[in-house]
């Protein structure tokens, strides 16, 4: 009897130890990968990363100077994308959660479509952007407005931003809906009992409370949009432009696209590697800061 108990507790101990070792090593391996990647980038980027690098245009055939146009291009792209993606995403979430009937077939289909959109590969968005925005909408606009002269029917800032906006739509929709879901139904009922309209309930009661959630979704969308390259390959990014983008139909330089082209097509690897590392570092700092901001906002929201 006692022996059986002892073997049992020994078995429990051994099994638990094995379990902890197995699962903990997975966690540690992932952390190691994260540290290796960040360390590798930061160590190599260190010397190159300076104020000149982020504030000047490239010179000497991209091998000297900085990457300011790429930073600016990324910022413009993401700003434009947010201006489209957030209003549409928030409105869709409000419609889904507050206006549409929860059990209707239509609502369920809509929700499924949103879920599906989140899983569509980013390169497919690139195809869509080229086929729809650039060739169909842009080409159509040229026919109507410019007698067929090529103005809008070619890759440009607006089309890339709209493509990215479609890509990040699910992020904002899901975050906003999640925030709306967390507001107790009693608040809505109380407000209706006080003779408010649905519009007032939504915009004066619910949206202010859902603001942190909307903000989190927006930040995550921006972070995702800043890092995606596949959707803008054919919709507007360029490797080198002598001047900054002037209007919505201009092409633009982009941090991620810069990394891709320089890493795969550079003639002088030794000269381009430090620039590459520094560009990657800038991109990582940008996306990580945004992600951390989202984590902080979310933590505050939970604490409140």
């Amino acid at each position: 009897m006692q022996l059986a108990d002892k073997t049992r507790s020994l078995r429990a101990k051994l099994g638990d130890t094995a379990m902890v070792i197995a699962t903990l090593s997975a966690v540690l391996l992932l952390l190691l990968a994260l540290v290796l990647l960040l360390g590798d980038v930061m160590v190599h980027a260190g010397a190159k990363l300076s104020w000149t690098f982020i504030s000047q245009a490239p010179s000497n055939g991209m091998m000297a100077g900085g990457i300011f146009p790429a930073i600016l291009g990324t910022a413009m792209l993401v700003l434009l994308m947010t201006a489209v993606s957030v209003p549409v995403g928030v409105a869709t979430a409000i419609y889904l959660h507050e206006y549409a009937r929860a059990d209707a077939l239509w609502t369920r289909a809509l929700r499924m479509a949103v879920q599906n959109l989140a899983g569509v590969p980013s390169i497919v968005f690139g195809l869509f952007g080229l086929g729809f925005f650039v060739q169909f909408v842009g080409g159509g606009m040229d026919k109507l407005l410019h007698d067929g002269h090529l103005v809008w029917g070619q890759p440009g800032l607006l089309w890339a931003a709209l493509t990215l906006a479609t890509l990040t739509l699910p992020t904002t929709i899901v975050a906003t809906e999640e925030a709306l879901r967390q507001i107790p139904a009693a608040q809505r009922e109380a407000a209706y009992a006080l003779a408010t309209s649905r519009f007032e309930v939504v915009f004066r009661l619910l949206v202010p409370q859902a603001m942190p959630g909307i903000l989190t979704g927006g930040i995550l969308a921006v972070s995702r949009g800043a890092g995606e390259v596949a959707p803008i390959l054919f919709t507007g990014a360029a490797y080198f432009l002598p001047e900054l983008p002037k209007s919505l139909d201009s092409q633009f330089m982009h941090l991620g696209y810069h990394v891709y082209v320089m890493a795969t097509q550079s003639a002088d690897v030794d000269a381009s590697t430090p620039i590459l590392y520094a560009t990657v570092a800038v991109l990582l700092i940008l996306t990580f800061t945004l992600n951390l901001a989202a984590v902080v906002v979310r933590a505050r929201m939970r604490a409140a």
Partner: peptide, 24 residues
């Protein structure tokens, strides 16, 4: 701390992962 840190992996742009794989 662990959960958001692991989820930080999701914040790495895929072009950076591609670059890391290609170079290092």
């Amino acid at each position: 701390i662990l959960k958001p840190t692991l989820e930080l992996l999701a914040g790495i742009p895929s072009v950076v992962l591609g670059f890391f794989a290609l170079v290092s």
